[in-house]
Structure formats: C-alpha cells, structure tokens
Write a protein that binds this DNA or RNA. Structure first.
Lengths: 221, 221
DNA sequence: CTTTTTCTGTTGCAATTGCAACAAAAATGT
DNA sequence: ACATTTTTGTTGCAATTGCAACAGAAAAAG
C-alpha cells in the first residue's frame, strides 16, 4: 500500500501528507518474512505503522515457547508505548510476510511542531481511529483468552473468522501451529480437541478450509 | 475528581474546558456501587470517561459465570466502540465503588464542531494519550491471560502489583473472588494453587496483604 | 528434483483444572 | 446486636491440559 493512501492520511491531500511526513521525520523500512521488525527493550519512543504485509507481536517465554499477542495487518499500529513494562519474556514484532513499515516518533504526533500544518489535526484524528481499532482487536483477544476451555476458544475464534468472511465456510488466516500460539494453548492438546470436534460433527476441516457445521456460541450477535 | 481537572482536559483552561463540554454535549451521571453503568447492546456511539470511583467491564457467560475483562479506574475510557461486535456473552460495565461518569458522543470528538475551539485539539491529543493507556492495560491483560498455568498467572499479577506499589509487600486491589474472575480461572482451583504457593514459601497472605517472598518471573525488568 | 525444514496428526501419562458441594469467617445491612 | 449475604478456605472427583515423543505429509530451500 502506498503510505500516502494509508488510513493514517485519510482525508489529507497528497501534498499535505508528504509535507507532514518530513515534518514527522518519518522513516520507511522494509522487512523480509521472519525478520524482527522491533524488539521491545525499553525504548518507547517510536510508533510503527505497518503499511503493507503482515506481522505478529509475540512474547517469547524463557523456555522458548511463543505466545502471539497480536496479529498485525495492513495499517495496524505497534510500538513499545502500547506495551506494558517488559517482563522477563522477550517481546518482539516479527514479519510474517514481507512488510513495509513507517516509524514515527510519538513526540511529533502528540506535540505538533506546527499546528498550522494542514492535515496535522486530521492525522491525529486518524490515529485516534486506528488506536480505537487496536483496542477493539485487543478486546477481541481478551475475549478469546477468557474462554476457559480449548474448545470454547476454538469455537469463538472460528465464529469470529466465519463472521469476518460472512460464511460458515472460511479460510484459516495462518497455520494451526500459529493458532495454538495465538490461543495460548498447547498445540497437541489443541489438535486433540480439534479432532474431537470433527468427530462430533461440529466442524469440518480440509487443509486450511474450515466449515462450521453447528455454531453454538461466540459468534457475532 | 473534578471533571475539568481530569486528564482529558489537561492543558486546557477552565473556561475553554467548560465551553468544550457544552460543545461536546457531555452528560454527567453518578452511579452507586453495583449499578450497571453501561450494557453493550450494539449502540456504539458514546464514549464513557470514569471521572471518579472504580468499575469493571465484564462478560457474563450464558451459564452466569463472569469474566472480568477490564478494571476501570479514574480517568479510564470505556464504550462499545472499543469492543468487538458482541458475542452471546453479555458485556457490561458495572460500578464497583460509587462512580461519576461523563458520556461524550464520539462524533463530537472525531468531527470537531468548531476546530477553532480553543483546546479542542488538546482534548483530542489527551484522548490519544488516554487511549494509549488503555491499549497498555489491555496488553497487560493479554500477557496475564497468555500464561498457561494458574500459578504463572498469579505470579505475573502479583509481580505487576508489587511493581505498582514498588514493594514486595502489596495490597490486593480487590477480593480473591474478583481476582479469579479477572484471571479467568476457577476460584477454587485458584485458591488451591494459592495454598500450594503459600506452603512452598513463594508468598505470604494475610487478608488482602500479600508478600512476595521469591519473585521468579513475570515482574518488571 | 532432491534435501531439509516445517507443519500436521497422534498417543500415553502425569499434572492441572473445573465443577460441585460444603463449612467457617468476614463483611454488610437493618 | 443480630440476621443475612458475601467471601474465604477446603476437598473429592472427573475431565481437560500440558508435556514429551514420535511418524508421516506438506512446504520451502537448495
């Protein structure tokens, strides 16, 4: 995606946007799949905006196991300001697909260098909207993790995914191994539960295509 | 807390703030402990700002069990815009202590009626800061819930609490029953684990005062 | 087109967890 | 001060889960 067409600059003219970018001292950077985009280390000044590709924010435990905290897609925000003071777990953002990222120092956003700049106010409003979206995403994650059993977590995730694609047949956005890290459950235990659910006729799984045959709970509305 | 001294109006003169409040068509309302402040029902227009007291945003499951999603304190934000489209669970904000709340329609914030209003830009920036804080809180919650075992959840929670009070001896901000709902685990199982941890000499518990005797993991730095 | 790596699928076993049910203690209301 | 409600503390038991270890399938790399 073109940075200037990114939701961050919605409602701002191209000219104003490019002026703002230099005013913000924005830095653009590309990342290959698997590369670490940012490792949280106490430096909480930069806000990252994913302008293309996909990435994951995860906590790597001392024993090496990984818990995916957030899945980041186009126009998502990330950065250490949005994180709690670090635990012993390593917190990092890693590219899933090839990514383009724009870094802006938060200072430039919250303290307008020139409030007269056309579009600055608009950008702040856009950031507000993007941040709201992140809150929604995190809230969704909390809902998932609040489910007591693996089955409930799976059903809730599937229901949300089905709602997104507006069909009982939907596509897994990532591998089952990744799903286990996202739901923060043991992979083999998750596979076992998945098998049970298949046998009991709740779902059908063909590769990464899943069909909800009976949707008990956790969906929208 | 006086609404005009709330972080939302930081850096805004009293005069400008009261002008903005009427411009925003802000509505102030008080709630007694236990009262429902807001039940999410698909009406996603109002942003709530808790100006005094404390409240909890929770999901009530079909079987009646409760999962506390967020604990809200002075100057916290809430509202359906920050929530995922509702599941079958009831989502509600309920007062813990006596609360004062100000409701503002989001429209007034994101679409300035009069961008010339002194302080409007400042309020939007303040909202950005408050929202960032909410993201941090939610991220903290996700970190807690991502822990696999009840023991890890407890230790992580205790470590954070100790960090907040900057002491290995700290005070539980709410009842153990509430803690179980917050960690989304069975209360009796949590008590059992707590007992084990006491016996193994990890912690000491006297009423609502907890002492961390050995802090293994999950703390800050 | 191999080779290597990652992902899927499975299982036994031990440990943890949720559930139900209860008694005692503490807090709350009248 | 007494009655009532809520919270704490406990336990047995069944079910779920994590862990470890593995084999085959699929995907990625060379």
């Amino acid at each position: 995606m073109d940075l200037l067409q990114c939701p961050l600059f919605a409602g701002v003219t191209k000219e104003a946007a490019s002026r703002l970018l230099s005013c913000f001292q924005a830095e653009q950077q590309d990342f290959a799949p698997g590369e670490v985009i940012l490792r949280y280390d106490g430096t909480a000044s930069r806000i990252g905006i994913l302008t293309s590709g996909s990435a994951a924010l995860s906590r790597v435990r001392a024993d090496g196991s990984v818990a995916i905290s957030q899945l980041l897609e186009e126009s998502d925000l990330f950065g250490e300001i949005f994180s709690f003071s670090p635990s012993l777990d390593i917190t990092e953002v890693r590219a899933e697909e090839a990514c383009s990222v724009v870094f802006i120092d938060k200072h430039h956003i919250t303290h307008p260098c020139c409030s007269t700049c056309a579009g600055h106010l608009q950008v702040i409003q856009n950031l507000f909207v993007l941040l709201s979206r992140k809150v929604v995403q995190l809230d969704e994650k909390v809902e998932l993790l609040s489910k007591r059993t693996t089955r409930e977590k799976l059903l809730c995730f599937f229901a949300k995914q089905a709602a997104k694609e507006n069909s009982a047949v939907f596509h897994m956005p990532f591998a089952f191994t990744t799903l286990a890290e996202y739901l923060s459950v043991d992979r083999s235990a998750m596979m076992r539960e998945l098998k049970k659910m298949r046998e009991e006729g709740f779902i059908r799984v063909e590769g990464r295509t899943v069909t909800l045959l009976a949707l008990p709970e956790g969906g929208d509305t």
